[in-house]
């Protein structure tokens, strides 16, 4: 069965700059697919091509079996879009905005129900400029969900939000996922992708440098888990005396190993020195660690 979104060898150039250099991926039905990458990696360009907002230079793209460049008008009733930096007319309320989309698209939806789903009922009659950052994003999500879409594009939905607002939006996304919606999530928050996405593609400089489930990516590109220790001045000599290889990173002494069991046995050996230890952090490598290393290595290689 073909995916809800299929991208084959997508390229996009702006004058002499090639922003997307032959990207291919597929998004399955009911899947949360996340495009990760640093600023300027080509994520938003890719998503805007899928949303029918930009023309591609070459390659094949289908969204729900249609070419978005030619059929976006038909797709509008089955696709929801939260663009990057969502904005609206400053003195219009969320309820009025939803009424506008309902009327314009000829939808049967109940704006009140959608506003309740994104937990925006209390601010439904507050004008846009007076909403908080999180509430503005929720309004954008509500607009994206009004047509009960099968596919939702969320382009950096939590950018610039405080932790509480971020988590509130995660809840909304998880709810959408539970309802079986397919979601394309663009973000540069790795924890967000790790928590929400079924599949991830890391984009850097216009190409996909890794893809798979977050777990697959971490295990494929895994280098080392680590123990981070801080404490008394004696701690460094204790580690040296035990012949435990370590390095200093700020106030922490860091012990790395590609085997988590080896790290557990080191913790066991350190039991006798617990009086000299203030902090002991056992940290498995995360998607963020892999991402930073991969993107950093690419940059170092380029340089």
């Amino acid at each position: 069965m073909p995916g809800i979104v299929e991208v084959r060898n997508l390229r996009k150039s702006y004058a002499k700059l090639e922003a997307v250099k032959g990207i291919s991926f597929e998004v399955g039905y009911g899947e949360v697919f996340s495009l990760l990458g640093p600023n300027g990696a080509g994520k938003t360009t890719t998503v805007e091509i899928l949303e029918g907002l930009r023309k591609r230079s070459s390659g094949d793209v289908t969204v729900m079996g249609r070419d978005p460049e030619k059929s976006m008008n038909e797709l509008r009733t089955t696709v929801g879009i939260l663009p990057q930096d969502f904005n609206f007319i400053y003195n219009i309320t969320p309820r009025e905005a939803l009424d506008y989309y309902k009327e314009s698209l000829g939808l049967e939806a109940d704006p009140g129900e959608v506003l309740a789903r994104v937990e925006l009922t209390d601010s439904a009659d507050t004008v846009f400029e007076k909403l908080s950052g999180g509430q503005k994003q929720k309004m954008g999500v509500a607009i994206a969900l009004l047509n009960d879409p099968d596919l939702v594009f969320l382009d950096e939905p939590t950018a610039g939000l405080d932790p509480v607002s971020r988590r509130a939006l995660w809840k909304v996304i998880e709810d959408m996922k539970a309802r079986g919606k397919s979601i394309i999530l663009t973000t540069h928050y790795l924890d967000e992708a790790e928590k929400l996405a079924d599949h991830v593609a890391i984009v850097n400089r216009g190409v996909i440098i890794a893809s798979g489930t977050p777990k697959e990516i971490v295990s494929m590109h895994h280098k080392a888990d680590r123990i981070m220790l801080s404490g008394s001045d004696k701690l460094q000599s204790i580690l040296s005396s035990m012949q435990i290889h370590h390095k200093r990173e700020g106030r922490y002494l860091v012990i790395e190993s590609d085997s988590i069991d080896a790290l557990f046995s080191i913790v066991e050996r350190l039991k006798g020195s617990s009086g000299d230890i203030e902090d002991l952090i056992l940290k498995r490598e995360t998607l963020e660690d892999v991402f930073v290393r991969m993107v950093g290595e690419e940059a170092a290689y380029e340089n």
């Binding site: 879009i81 663009p83 989309y101 314009s104 698209l105 607009i143």
Partner: peptide
Amino acid sequence: EKKIFRQLSFAGL
């Protein structure tokens, strides 16, 4: 600047 035209175009405008 605020990309409101783009947002309105999602309503087909």
